[in-house]
């Protein structure tokens, strides 16, 4: 894991991780695969047989309803981020995850943990002040911050692609703080 220049944040990240795992294991009904390495079988044989009756103890059979896909192409939450994921905003010339973005990160992580089939591309963007090349590098750093944060929260790195668009794809072409703030953003785009 690359946590360059984020040493003061390691402690914070670790605390968040502990908090997140406690929080998620406490609330989520499904098993939380924090490491993603050993899948835990949730259906326990005892419970199944305990209900008795029917062949092999099966009491009923019905087709599973396809869970309505609430995410996917076309559904945008903000910027270019696929709903229900939320984009992460940054300060000018910064690529650290702001305190007010940590709740979003946890929501994003929770969604990804609940939907292990989902792969995302983290797209780093910058406002159009500053120079194109530096902003491409800055966008890459922003994408990596979000990626590392999600990995810390238990998302398998293979599910997280990264790309930086620098200042080349502003969602708001305005030349004011409101527009710039919107453009300093990591989009989380579902690519399956």
């Amino acid at each position: 894991m690359y946590i360059e220049r984020m040493y003061p944040k390691i402690l914070l990240a670790a605390l968040t991780l502990i908090f997140a795992s406690v929080f998620l294991t406490g609330c989520a009904k499904k098993s939380v695969q924090v490491s993603g390495e050993t899948p835990v079988e949730e259906v326990s044989a005892q419970e199944g047989t305990a209900l008795g009756e029917g062949p092999g103890g099966i009491t009923g059979e019905e087709p599973i309803e396809e869970v309505a896909v609430t995410y996917g192409e076309g559904n945008i939450s903000e910027g270019r981020t696929s709903a229900p994921l939320l984009p992460i905003y940054f300060d000018f010339d910064r690529y650290n995850i702001r305190d007010d973005m940590k709740e979003r990160m946890e929501k994003n992580a929770a969604f990804l943990l609940d939907h292990p089939e989902v792969r995302i591309e983290i797209q780093g963007n910058c406002d159009d002040r500053g120079t194109n090349e530096y902003n491409l590098a800055l966008g890459e750093k922003r994408a990596k911050s979000v990626r590392d944060y999600l990995v810390n929260l238990g998302i398998v790195p293979d599910r997280l692609e990264m790309v930086s668009f620098g200042e080349e794809r502003p969602v708001d072409p305005g030349q004011n703080e409101e527009a710039w703030a919107k453009n300093r953003r990591d989009d989380l785009v579902i690519i399956r």
Binding site: R5, E133, L136, L138
Partner: peptide, 26 residues
């Protein structure tokens, strides 16, 4: 550490200028 970008060579190729945010700003 940090971003290293936008290199440019001296005319004799012996030096290279570039941008880095290693001190916190580019």
């Amino acid at each position: 550490p940090g971003i290293n970008v936008s290199p440019t060579w001296s005319p004799n190729g012996k030096r290279l200028a570039f941008v880095s945010d290693r001190t916190g700003s580019p």
